[in-house]
């Protein structure tokens, strides 16, 4: 097997090259141990298909999503303008993000600040690769297994991306079951709006526990997620119910790499 490579934008630029897509790794994808595995999975897919991509590496900054939603517009503007300067300097045209929060901010909120890019989420990108026939996926270990998909708020309601992740899962020849609240009614994992980074307000239970209870109702073998924060929240929820041996929480990119043995 060939060795996987991760081209860095600054190095490509030094060679006078421009990649076809920029893979926006995101802070979770860069630093969070669980999300790093998703990053690795997606990079393997890109490598396997010989896609001409690059990452920003040290030049990537947080998109600003948690700061803006917490209410700190100054910090958001600093990060956003810094990112836009970097992206424009490299003449970036197309960005694929594996985090719905980065995806939403880059796609919708950078425009007004002078950052105009085609931004898509990795679920949509993988689905496009499948549809065009470039990426083939066999069911592998997922064939006939019961998979449920948890809608990320920032993909679904925020940007109307409901079908692409499901289409990717359907390619696995698995038994795709829906949660009680799905699509437009999808229940949040509890992490959005910078909740990820602070304690909950007083209440009866945590939101990820509520969502995990819906997951347990359908008793799946796998929960598919498309967001690093949903991933953390549901992994915690499943562990809280001591079900981590029966129910695995995986990102869409990981389904593809595992099914294809990358």
């Amino acid at each position: 097997m060939s060795t996987y490579k991760v081209p860095v934008m600054a190095e490509l630029a030094a060679e006078g090259k421009e990649p076809e897509i920029l893979f926006w790794v995101g802070c979770a994808g860069s630093f969070d141990q669980r999300a790093q595995r998703v990053t690795l999975a997606f990079v393997k897919i890109l490598n396997q298909l010989n896609i001409n991509f690059a990452v920003l590496g040290p030049e990537e900054a947080c998109s600003g999503d948690p700061a803006r939603r917490a209410g700190n517009e100054f910090v958001f503007q600093m990060l956003a303008q810094q990112n836009i300067a970097t992206l424009n300097m490299y003449n970036v045209k197309k960005i694929v993000a594996a985090c719905p929060h980065c995806f939403n901010t880059l796609k919708n909120e950078y425009k007004e600040l002078g950052g105009n890019y085609e931004v898509i989420h990795h679920s949509t990108y993988i689905n496009e690769l499948l549809k065009s026939g470039k990426l083939k996926v066999q069911g592998g270990e997922f064939k006939g297994k019961k998979i449920t998909y948890h809608d990320s708020c920032y993909l679904g309601r925020a940007n109307d991306v409901y079908e692409a992740p499901r289409e990717v899962l359907m390619a696995l020849d698995a038994d795709l079951v829906e949660l009680k609240s799905c699509r437009t009614k999808g229940l949040c994992c509890g992490a959005g709006g910078a909740q990820m980074f602070k304690e909950d307000e007083p209440g009866d239970k945590r939101i990820n526990v509520e969502r995990t209870e819906q997951v347990l109702e359908v008793n799946p073998d796998y929960v598919a997620v498309a967001c690093p924060f949903c991933n953390t929240m549901l992994t915690d929820g499943v562990k809280g119910h001591d079900k981590q041996d029966d129910i695995k929480v995986l990102d869409l990119a990981e389904f593809v790499t595992k099914a294809n043995g990358y």
């Binding site: 991760v6 860095v8 790794v25 802070c27 994808g29 860069s30 630093f31 790093q36 990053t39 690795l40 990452v55 590496g57 040290p58 030049e59 990537e60 900054a61 947080c62 600003g64 948690p66 700061a67 917490a70 700190n72 910090v75 600093m78 990060l79 810094q82 910078a194 990820m196 980074f197």
Partner: peptide
């Protein structure tokens, strides 16, 4: 804490930008 992390090292956690490619 996350605001100051974001200002100082451009990530909500206390990691250096130089470590963004450690994975």
């Amino acid at each position: 804490t996350i605001f100051s992390n974001l200002e100082n090292n451009q990530a909500p956690w206390q990691f250096s930008p130089q470590d963004r490619l450690n994975w």
